[in-house]
Write a protein that binds this DNA or RNA. Structure first.
Lengths: 180, 180
DNA sequence: GAACAATACGGAGCGCTGTTCCGTTTTGTC
DNA sequence: GACAAAACGGAACAGCGCTCCGTATTGTTC
């Protein structure tokens, strides 16, 4: 069995999660490690010990919300008027999540700095949920993976740009997918 | 009138364009400046003097192809069976362009390192063309800007991933846009 | 061709990143 | 209190963008 964790270790882990959450809001998920360390009042080594890759930290910070999104899938399916409506509502949730986290969508598509693991986590957790919704909607001419990546891609943004609203395009995409 | 350029300056500018083109293929459009300088056998200062921002260099390298894409718009409109077909064909061209240039789509959406100008250039040159195609297709429920950004976004890729094909999603998007 | 501005060049240097590594400190146990 | 194991901190290294200025090249004038 794994030996119990030391007191200072668990304390620091909590401190780090809080600090990271705050910094992510202020400076985006790709904020400098040093900034997070400073915010937590902790050395950089400590961060790397607890969260070896950046993705580990991001996942830890957003785990709750990803979980909530995953659980919302089946729920929507049973409460919505139609499977298609459920799919649309779930996608809305997913988009909200991505858009409100500064730079999360960008990070999801990045292929550097251990962000692949972030991608993998999202996929593992939300892919099956998305798959269920697609199956129920009889929209099986697309794979969950592909739809989720497409949505993620459409959400990558460059600062604040009033001319571009990912939701409009995603709505069109779903129109095409569900046959208007 | 502007004084004539010195001989070594024009020579170096050509050398740089060739070197950049080669490096972009090998290492992507966000390759280190030093790598391009080395490939050209030139100091870094020289690059910055000729192309103050990264976008300037990228634009210079791909100007021909962007131009070709812009000119293809009206041409397709007059040779295709329908405006919608012309739009689809043009989008195909645009996607081909983005996908074959290693990391270009990613750079287009990046908001750092003077890449905004790259974004602006693409928009200025291709936006009106796209607008014409949209108008002819009577698909005016979307702005050229938004469609082009959406397409660009869908093309951002993380290495080679056989499970994700931007074209499938873009086809669905156009289905939704043109009413199947 | 020689002399001289003007122009262009090269790359050392600065600041900011991610990541590692090891001497020091804290913790848990006996 | 003593001791080993676990965890910590931050100096240090490497890679990057970008600037700056001493040096070299070019065009012009005699």
């Amino acid at each position: 069995m794994p030996p119990r964790k030391r007191a200072d270790a668990v304390r620091n882990e909590q401190t780090l999660l809080a600090a990271a959450a705050e910094v992510f809001v202020r400076s985006g998920v790709d904020a400098p490690i040093r900034e997070i360390a400073a915010q937590a009042g902790v050395g950089m080594g400590t961060i790397y010990r607890h969260f070896p890759t950046r993705a580990d930290l991001v996942v830890a910070v957003y785990r709750h919300q990803v979980e909530a999104c995953a659980e919302a899938g089946p729920a929507l399916l049973s409460t919505s008027d139609s499977p298609a409506a459920a799919l649309r509502a779930w996608v809305d949730l997913f988009v909200d999540f991505l858009v409100t986290k500064h730079g999360l969508a960008n990070a999801l598509q990045s292929d550097s700095s251990g962000f692949e693991q972030l991608h993998a986590y999202f996929l593992d957790r939300l892919g099956p949920v998305c798959g269920e919704l697609l199956k129920a909607s009889e929209a099986e001419n697309i794979q969950p993976y592909e739809l989720m990546r497409g949505i993620g891609n459409l959400c990558v943004g460059r600062g604040d740009d009033t001319r571009y609203d990912p939701r409009r395009l995603i709505a069109l995409l779903l129109d095409g997918l569900l046959g208007t």
